[in-house]
Design a protein around this nucleic acid. Structure first.
Lengths: 183, 183
DNA sequence: TATAACATGTAACTAGTTACATGATTGG
DNA sequence: CCAATCATGTAACTAGTTACATGTTATA
């Protein structure tokens, strides 16, 4: 699946593995992420399968870059994937909610402290999606052709992040109140 | 991590791998899931490490069951895990949102049809959390000691599921409206 | 009459993580 | 002077998925 993340990100400009990680961290991290080591391995595989092509870009004073660009085969494959219908909800893993699920076995003080910490953490996340991301999306618009519809989808996924973290914060507030009553 | 899911679920009653999968599907599936094959492998490992103990329960007409119970070592380890503070947000992977992110490359008709399908799908998910899960939680309360606080946490995670899917449905509605305007 | 539920498990494969290895330049 | 950024990659390990293998009984 990382395969398609990389193919998708390479649609407009060629990029190095390092670039791709930067881009992922700045744009898709709240619904898709990857470690550099895995990105490098996947790019290598993608090139072996001819979905991308790479060349070395020499640099002075800093390491040379290996820059990848999408091939026609790669673009076709991406389009095929996008045209498939997804008919099952995504499976989610939230390790912290799993922990919470067993908090019947934990101390009340620990539980409350943990939920407050999460509240603080997720409030900051939400603020990021409201306060910093819109500006970054605005800046990125310059990098795509003006008739391109990509920014609409960037904005929609940003909005998803905003709503997700807002929901999480509401849930934490509600849950803290509940636990104060019921424990 | 599945390790802790299994240890946690074995706190009250001994269960077989098959039971554990049933229980997971009915209670934690919206934030933690696992395939049977992986559950069997993990239980085996857990027994080798002495976190659980198993015995065979012969049955007539149907296959014998291998039933696992938590050891003291297992319970201690679980408690240690619950007492750790989690200070980073969970990393999430939503493959369908990744697809959506690249829908600049897809046909408008396909996009709208896909979002309508998701809307239908997630509305049903949400209804499940509102209409069927509360009854199941109520029924499960009988299986734990009356002074046990577990049901409070079951109800809170159910509520998380309800809020999550409601948020998802709202996002889909908002996004559909937006796309009708902007594409 | 077929398929779902009950029940356990292994083998092969795929994907992802952590740790290691290297090394210059820039900013605080 | 130390940490971060830039930049690429491999090796070992961990976790998870898919497919295979077996066989009865209850239900639609």
């Amino acid at each position: 699946m990382l395969k398609y993340a990389l193919l998708g990100l390479l649609r407009h400009q060629p990029m190095s593995g390092y670039d791709l990680e930067q881009f992922i961290n700045a744009s898709t991290a709240h619904f898709w992420h990857a470690k550099l080591s895995q990105i490098y391995r996947t790019l290598k595989q993608l090139e072996a399968d001819e979905y991308v092509l790479s060349h070395i870009e020499p640099q002075e004073g800093r390491p040379d870059r290996r820059v990848y660009r999408l091939t026609d085969k790669g673009r076709d494959d991406l389009k095929g994937w996008l045209a498939e219908y997804v008919t099952e909800p995504d499976e989610i893993k939230l390790p912290s909610l799993l922990r919470f699920f067993f908090f019947g076995e934990a101390e009340k003080e620990h539980i409350v402290a943990q939920l407050r910490l999460w509240h603080n953490m997720y409030s900051k996340q939400q603020a990021h999606f409201v306060e910093v991301l819109p500006g970054q999306i605005e800046a990125l618009k310059a990098s795509v052709p003006h008739n391109d519809t990509d920014p609409v989808f960037w904005e929609a996924t940003r909005r998803f992040g905003e709503m997700y973290y807002a929901m999480y914060v509401r849930w934490l507030e509600e849950t803290l109140r509940q636990l104060e009553d019921e424990l």
